[in-house]
Amino acid sequence: MAQNAAQVFRDYVVQGVPSSGPHNPVKAEIRSLIGGIESLVNTGGLGGATWKETRALLAADLAHDADDIGVVYDDPSSENNGLYTKVGAAGTGSWRQITTFLPGYQFITASDDGESIPNAYSMNTSPRLPYADGVALVEFVVPETNTSSTVTISFDGAEPLTIKTASGNSPAIGGLIEGMPISGVKVGPNFYMRSDQASAALLTQAEGLLLDMQDELASAVINLTEQTEPIRDAAQAAATDAQMYAEMVGAAVYDFNFDSDPSTPGYDWND
């Protein structure tokens, strides 16, 4: 299979794995890559290329001169899409793949194929998503709000990719909101969003925490009221009893201190 620039000039022996050691580009792969680009430049772009829907259709059309450009744009196997050069004279030879993507077609639109569920999205792409990693920006509209932090997305029936934020974290529950536009790239087994986290999801989480705190506060007030009401009632009863006792004592003092002057009731302070 033809390799693109990201593969030929990758940083490590195993792409994305630093522990595998630094990768030294192979001269033959460099010549193949640059040779394809030179052929593309010499033909003046893709305007004069032979466009075929599938690799099989291109392989069946050998009526082209050596180094002519061919394009496969909608093969069911995404790794077959891309640019090809003709090997051999007209009527003979074969087509050699030089890229797994189409120059100028690095913006891919994906749409729900009707099989999506909240935590597993299923999409069709147009033009078809390239096989190589990181060579195309994909945009789609979230079909279902996620109810788990683990969410996958499958393009054109291929193996599901795990959706990650730009920093490599899992999206928050409720962070992928139905109707929200998302863009990102495929890298290995993951689909990385361009954004780190949806602010709307964070706001929703903050609002949920606020409601929880309000509920806790209301519950605490009810519990405190239930605990203090008996104390308050007892205090009020004791105060009432004290007042009644004071009134009774006052009455007794009034009754048992005889007045020397009956015309002026009360204690005769002059005696």
Results as ranks from 00 to 15, higher is better:
V141K: 05
Q227E: 07
S183T: 08
K186T: 12
E159M: 14
T225A: 00
S167C: 09
D215M: 05
A234P: 04
E144D: 06
A200R: 10
A166W: 08
A172P: 02
S183E: 11
L137R: 14
A132E: 01
S148P: 10
T152V: 09
A234Y: 06
E144Q: 09
A200K: 12
T145R: 12
G179L: 14
V142R: 00
D133N: 14
L202K: 02
I182W: 01
G157H: 04
V185G: 08
L202Y: 03
S167W: 06
A201N: 09
A132I: 02
T147S: 15
P189T: 14
K186L: 04
A206F: 06
S149L: 06
A132F: 01
R128I: 06
A172D: 15
Q197L: 11
K164C: 15
P181E: 01
L224H: 00
T147D: 15
Q227K: 01
A158W: 00
S149D: 14
L211C: 01
E178P: 09
N169S: 15
E216L: 05
F191E: 06
A136G: 03
D215L: 08
T162Y: 15
T162K: 14
L210Y: 04
F191P: 11
P230N: 00
V187S: 10
E207H: 05
A234C: 01
E139K: 08
Q197V: 13
R194Q: 14
L137K: 09
Y192K: 09
L161Y: 15
L209P: 04
G174Y: 13
G174D: 08
G134C: 14
I173L: 15
I182G: 05
L203T: 07
A201P: 02
S183P: 04
L211F: 10
A206N: 07
S199Y: 08
I177K: 07
Y192P: 05
L137V: 09
I153R: 00
D156V: 02
M180P: 04
A218L: 06
P189L: 13
V135G: 02
F191N: 12
T165V: 11
A235V: 00
A172E: 14
D233F: 03
V221D: 04
G175R: 07
V221S: 07
A206G: 03
F155G: 03
E178I: 15
Q205C: 01
E226A: 08
T225V: 05
N169V: 14
L203Q: 06
S149W: 12
T152F: 05
I173V: 15
P160R: 13
L161E: 05
I231E: 07
E226C: 05
T152R: 01
I231S: 00
A235S: 03
P143N: 03
L161D: 09
I153N: 04
P143L: 01
D215Q: 07
S149K: 11
T162L: 14
K164F: 15
L137S: 12
N146T: 03
M193A: 14
A201L: 06
T204Y: 02
R194E: 13
N169T: 15
T162A: 15
A132L: 02
L176N: 12
E207M: 04
L209V: 13
G168Y: 15
S167F: 09
A234G: 05
S149G: 11
S199F: 00
V185L: 12
M193W: 10
A166P: 04
P181N: 02
Q214G: 13
E226N: 03
E139N: 05
V221L: 02
L161W: 13
Q227G: 08
I163H: 10
A220Y: 03
G174T: 11
R194T: 13
P230I: 03
L217T: 06
